[in-house]
Design a protein around this nucleic acid. Structure first.
Lengths: 244, 244
DNA sequence: AGAATAAGGTAACACACTGTAACAATAAGC
DNA sequence: GCTTATTGTTACAGTGTGTTACCTTATTCT
């Protein structure tokens, strides 16, 4: 990729110019936008690698915008908000954020997140399981996004915990793409306040193991979630995406 | 939007400065005002995201002011009053308040409401929220606000207690949005009395549990009110809103 | 090939979070 | 008064999740 192009969306001119300036000082291309139509104009005009999006845009809702963008594109989005109370909402998959940062923010933290999102976007699709509640089918299984339920080939419902479900969604959104543990961890908890680089030990391995016991016919020889030794894990079944 | 800007309207200088100071300490911009003309000056001068309005402003009436403002603008308003007696009149939408808090109030409760109103303003216009939308449908169920009745898919009426009904309303108004226990408590507690933070213990959990036994087919595996571990609860069914 | 080394699998544990039954306090009828 | 319903609190049980420790498997080295 050439120089990453970031779209900075904020309706407050001061904040917008401050952000664009900061982004540019750090070697990226920053393009300002204030409204949804600005965004669409920029996107259709040229490649955009990442969007920094204020949650509150005066009369427009950043969340709505993000969702409608996600319906068409697969651009990574980092949300910025002054309301720390919004943090827990970002965890919901329905929002579709790749990351979230509270305002006023630490510039270095922002930069770290931007780099993290950009680097993983190069290899994978946006890890934020793509928006709109969709239904996936794989190897006879069905994941129904609307109800957040998983049904086995026989049609029986399988009880997955929240984390297991979230993990499965990450895999489904990135079928055939090897994911590192770090990438998976980042996708599972939208990090929020804590710094981006926590080495959480073997938590992902254990989680993958638990998911395997529930969805693999023979967990000893996994057909769906394969291990990419030295790298991470791959979901290696074809995934069929069905609209609602 | 940059940092939210709140207009603090109270004719008592002490209360006014106390409020503005508290608001500022919590990361917002607070602008003081004492009279209706002050308010209009501020509003025409710059963007205002929320007005905290004392009901009794000496010779002016906060309610009148609010209504005349409403004729022109759509700014969210939270009323503050020493008379806890007429809180139900406030909540009545005739007045045009987005929320109401009694004086003396718990600071954390005020903060929770401020955040809730600001956050809600992102996705629903204050106008739409205040409109008398009273009937909701979800998963075959119907909640009829006019009579405060809940009817099951069969058409049979289900008896919910006052708090259970209030809780259901909060969920219906925030479908698919994870709510923390604090947010739910803030929305339920109409009395601005003592403790507002965590002194409430597990009350919300128990209340949710009771609601579940009454509206979930299988309360053990809830389909409507899901728990978001470490966060709170989400109402995860589509809600259809009907006008009266 | 066999040994040494690195990486992943997983059982067992610890801990935090949630569900809920039982009780207490209070209000509302009768 | 007594009874009943509502609501919050407490206590305990159940569940989910991360860590540790040990075992198995794959890779590399000699």
């Amino acid at each position: 990729m050439a120089i990453p192009r970031l779209l900075v969306v904020d309706d407050d001119p001061e904040m917008r110019s401050m952000l664009t300036q900061f982004i540019r000082q750090n070697g990226f291309i920053a393009l300002p936008a204030a409204t949804e139509s600005d965004i669409r104009k920029q996107i259709s005009a040229d490649r955009i690698d990442l969007i920094l999006l204020d949650v509150m845009l005066g009369d427009e809702s950043g969340i709505d915008i993000c969702q409608s963008l996600r319906a068409e594109q697969d651009v990574p989005v980092i949300f910025i908000s002054a309301l720390s109370a919004d943090h827990h909402r970002m965890k919901g998959y329905e929002v579709g954020a790749d990351d979230y940062i509270a305002k006023p923010f630490n510039p270095n933290l922002l930069l770290a997140r931007v780099k993290a999102v950009l680097s993983r976007a190069q290899r994978t699709s946006s890890l934020a399981y793509r928006r709109r509640i969709k239904t996936f089918g794989f190897d006879g299984w069905i994941y129904e996004g609307k109800r957040d339920e998983v049904r086995a080939p026989g049609g029986y419902q399988v009880a997955l915990s929240q984390k297991e479900t979230a993990l499965l969604k990450v895999f489904l959104a990135n079928a055939h793409i090897p994911l590192t543990r770090e990438e998976i961890a980042a996708a599972l908890d939208v990090t929020g306040e804590s710094d981006g680089t926590e080495a959480t030990g073997r938590a992902i391995d254990v989680l993958v193991g638990r998911l395997r016991t529930k969805i693999e016919k023979d967990p000893k020889t996994p057909k769906l979630v394969r291990t990419a030794r030295g790298v991470g894990y791959v979901f290696s079944a074809d995934v069929e995406v069905k609209e609602d």
